[in-house]
Lab assay of single mutants.
Amino acid sequence: KVMEIKLIKGPKGLGFSIAGGVGNQHIPGDNSIYVTKIIEGGAAHKDGRLQIGDKILAVNSVGLEDVMHEDAVAALKNTYDVVYLKVAKP
């Protein structure tokens, strides 16, 4: 199931950690970017929809399929206060 989640960045950013990407696979044979941690009190935690194990398909208009881990981190960092995440639920 794919959904779009709109998050408003807090003082600590979006409030979640990711793993995965080309050269840094979270699941062997899979280059996808996965949510590995939700920080308590952060934007994602308060919103409640993003969960550990969700796959991040895109940030705003930037696709995160088959990208390097660093590029995924940069895509999440290089955002304004309002961030749209395209997410696939497991």
Rank of each mutant, 00 (worst) to 15 (best):
Gly15Leu: 02
Asn60Leu: 00
Ile33Ala: 02
Val35Cys: 13
Val59Gln: 01
Thr79Ser: 13
Asp54Trp: 08
Ser61Glu: 11
Leu57Ser: 07
Leu14Gly: 02
Glu70Asp: 15
Met68Thr: 07
Val82Asn: 13
Val22Gln: 06
Val87Arg: 02
Gly41Met: 11
Val82Glu: 14
Val62Tyr: 10
Gly29Pro: 03
Asp54Leu: 02
Val35Pro: 00
Gly41Gln: 06
Asn24Leu: 07
Lys55Arg: 12
Ser32His: 09
Ile33Cys: 05
Val2Gln: 05
Gly23Cys: 10
Lys9Gln: 04
Leu76Ile: 13
Pro28Arg: 11
Lys55Thr: 08
Glu70Ser: 15
Ile5His: 02
Lys37Gly: 11
Val67Arg: 10
Pro90Phe: 07
Leu76His: 03
Val62Gly: 07
Ala75Trp: 08
Val83Phe: 08
Val67Phe: 10
Lys9Gly: 10
Leu7His: 02
Ile38Asp: 00
Gly42Tyr: 05
Ile5Lys: 00
Phe16Asp: 00
Glu4Arg: 08
Glu40Asp: 10
Thr79Val: 11
Lys37Trp: 06
Asn60Arg: 02
Arg49Asn: 15
Asp30Gly: 03
Gly42Met: 15
Ile39Leu: 09
Gly10Met: 06
Lys89Asp: 04
Gly63Cys: 09
Val83Trp: 03
Ala75Glu: 11
Asn31Pro: 11
Ala75Tyr: 10
Ala74Asp: 15
Ile38Arg: 01
Gly20Leu: 02
Val73Glu: 14
Ile56Thr: 00
Val59Gly: 01
Ala72Asn: 01
Glu65Thr: 14
Val35Gly: 00
Leu76Pro: 01
Asp30Met: 03
Pro28Val: 05
Ile27Phe: 15
Ile39Val: 14
Glu4Cys: 06
Asn60His: 03
Ala72Trp: 03
Leu85Met: 09
Gly23Met: 05
Ile18Ser: 03
Pro11Tyr: 08
Ile8Gly: 07
Asp47Met: 03
Ile27Tyr: 14
Lys12Cys: 07
Met68Gln: 13
Ala88Trp: 08
Val2Leu: 04
Asp47Trp: 01
Gly13Ala: 04
Gly23Ile: 06
Val87Met: 04
Lys77Asp: 13
Ala58Thr: 14
Tyr80Asp: 07
Asn78Pro: 08
Leu14Cys: 04
Lys9Phe: 06
Ala88Leu: 09
Gly53Val: 01
Ile39Tyr: 09
Ala44Ile: 03
Val35Asn: 01
Gly29Leu: 06
Val67Ile: 13
Ile38Ser: 00
Gly21His: 02
Leu57Met: 14
Pro11Leu: 10
Asp30Trp: 02
Gly48Ala: 14
Asp71Val: 10
Arg49Val: 12
Asn24Thr: 08
Asn60Gly: 12
Asp54Pro: 00
